[in-house]
Design a protein around this nucleic acid. Sequence first.
DNA 1: ATGGTCGTTTCACGA
Length: 262
Amino acid sequence: MRIATWNVNSVRSRIDRVEALLVRHEIDVLALQETKARDDQWPVMGLEAMGYEVATLGHDQWNGVAIVSRVGLDDVQPGFEGMPQWGDPLASEARALGATCGGVRMWSLYVPNGRALGDPHLDYKLAWLSALREAARGWLDDDPTAQVALAGDWNIAPLDEDVFDITRFARSTHVSPAERAAFTAVLDAGYVDLAREHTPGPDVFTYWDYYRQRFERNRGMRIDFVLGSPALAQRVTGAAVDRDERAGKGASDHAPVIVDLD
DNA sequence: ATGGTCGTTTCACGA
C-alpha cells in the first residue's frame, strides 16, 4: 500500500496534476491540503472515474483538506477531539480530516501557519498542535496497535537542515523553539517520521517559495511530513519526495511526500 | 527593510 501527502495549493487549478500523480505513483491514499475549494466546487468526477473515493473538508476562504482513496474511505471525521472550535475566528485557517482507508487511520492535516513571531496566530498554532498531540496520544492509549498516519503540511521545520539557510530564519516562524517542541511532543507521544530515514537531508525539502527562483536554486524547507504510529512505522519499506512535481509551469509550491507500506 | 510570485470569493491578502 502506498500513501502520500501533498499541499496542492488549489485543487481546481491543479486537478490534472493530482490525477497524474495518482497514476504515476500508483498511490492508494492521498491526503491533500490547501485545496481552496468549497465541497460543492470539488472536481471529483475524474477521480471517481479512476476508482477513487473522495472526502473533502472545504473552506469559505482559504485552505481546505481532503482524502482521496481507492482502498476504502470510512468513518470520515472533520477535526479531532479537542481541536479549537470552528467558531473561533483564528480557527478558520486550520483544517483536519480523518478517515479509515485500507485499515489505516489517515489524517490530512493543515497545521496553522502562525504568520509571525508574536502574532496571536502563532499562539493558536501551538494550541492546535497541543490538542492534536493529546488526541493522537489518546488513540494510542486506546489501541497501541492502531495504524495511524498524521499526514500533511505541518508548517514546522524540525531541524536546522530542514531550511535552506538557518541564519535567515532567526526571527521566523516554522523554526522557533516552541514550534519545534510542539512537533517533538508528537514524536514523544509515540509517532515516527515515516519518510526521513528514507529521504535523508541536508538539502531535501518539500516546499519552495514561488519567487526568487527558490526551487531552481533548491532553497526550500522541509515542512510536510507523514508521522506514523508504531504499528504503521513497522510497515514502512520506503519513502520519497516527488521533487519533479514541483518543477515546471503550473506546479504547486509544495512537493508530494510518498510512503510505501508492506 | 523590501521585494519577489502564486492562489483566491482579487484592485487585497495570505502564503
